[in-house]
Design a binder for these strands. Structure first.
Length: 281
DNA sequence: AGCCAGGGTCTGC
DNA sequence: GCAGACCATGGC
């Protein structure tokens, strides 16, 4: 990868194993949308970002070199050698198949509180509605950072709103869970800045003290925000995948230290198979 | 109308 | 430890 500064943009050339579409449409992140021009636009790390891709050339619009280094290099996890990781995971035939179809999915390094809150909202819910609820939460309690963009509200702000204050976002039974998380984070009972330095199972246990956070939600937060690549979130899709391709005696450690990456590739793979079969109608 | 969605809690065995 | 009811909401 090479970094070029041009006008007010940052251009990344030779971007291997990086697809914006796969990275943003794989269900790890709910705040980026494709624009009518084929770009992706969204808010992360308190900033609005517009980013586009032409083959292996990625352009971050209106981003300075220091902002790229400070924020987006780690957010997109650009220093991780995905070619090597995917090659190692391809000892498994199904993973080989998944990688053959899509090899540009990257696990983002998202913010802890936003990810925690987002995956509490995700429970027993579907992706379009998760996006809608998060979007209205940001509009309700976040800071306006441009004409059409709002930051993710702080835990303090959400805690102050209370369950009744969340009524407009229509999150249903999840509102009480969001508030419990917001209280525990803002009062320091859960210190998100130390989660990443704990051992995986300790960190998981800690997150699961929050009402509405079980194993699956905790694993998503650990994987998508804190770099625990051994976390292997099992939602209905992944359970289906295990049933279909692996069977009863499957263990989450089958894929080893990068099980979470494998999980995300398989999740994306299985959903793309479904979309394909729907299109054929 | 009924089922499902990147689940979790609570109760009862 | 495990099964089952229940939880809000919206799209199909």
């Amino acid at each position: 990868m090479e970094i070029i500064k041009k006008n007010n943009n940052i251009i990344l050339t030779n971007c291997n194993n990086f697809s914006l579409e796969q990275t943003f449409e794989c269900g790890q992140c709910f705040r980026f949308e494709q624009t009518s021009e084929g770009l992706y636009s969204g808010v992360a790390l308190g900033r609005k970002l517009i980013i586009g891709q032409e083959k292996d050339i990625v352009t971050l619009y209106d981003v300075s070199e220091s902002e790229f280094e400070q924020r987006w290099r780690s957010y997109f996890d650009l220093d991780r050698d995905y070619a090597c990781i995917l090659d190692r995971l391809s000892f498994d035939g199904r993973m080989r198949e998944a990688v053959r179809r899509a090899c540009g999915l990257r696990i983002l390094r998202q913010e802890g509180w936003e990810t925690l809150c987002s995956f509490i909202i995700s429970q027993n819910n579907n992706i379009p509605r998760i996006k809608k609820i998060i979007s209205s939460l940001c509009r309700l309690l976040g800071e306006q950072i441009s004409e059409d963009a709002y930051s993710f509200p702080t835990a303090e702000k959400v805690a102050a709103a209370g369950i009744d204050g969340l009524a407009p976002i229509r999150s249903g039974f999840r509102a009480k869970y969001i508030i419990d998380a917001a209280r525990k984070v803002s009062e320091g009972q859960i210190n998100l800045s130390e989660i990443g330095s704990l051992e995986y199972l300790r960190a998981r246990e800690k997150l699961m003290c929050i009402k509405g956070v079980g194993e699956k939600v905790a694993d998503c937060v650990l994987l998508f925000a804190f770099g625990f690549y051994e976390a292997f979130p099992k939602d209905v899709w992944v359970k289906r995948i295990i049933d279909k391709y692996y069977g009863e005696d499957f263990e989450a450690d089958y894929f080893g230290e990068n099980a979470g990456i494998a999980q995300q590739y398989l999740f994306y793979y299985e959903r793309s198979l479904l979309k394909e079969s729907v299109c054929e109608e």
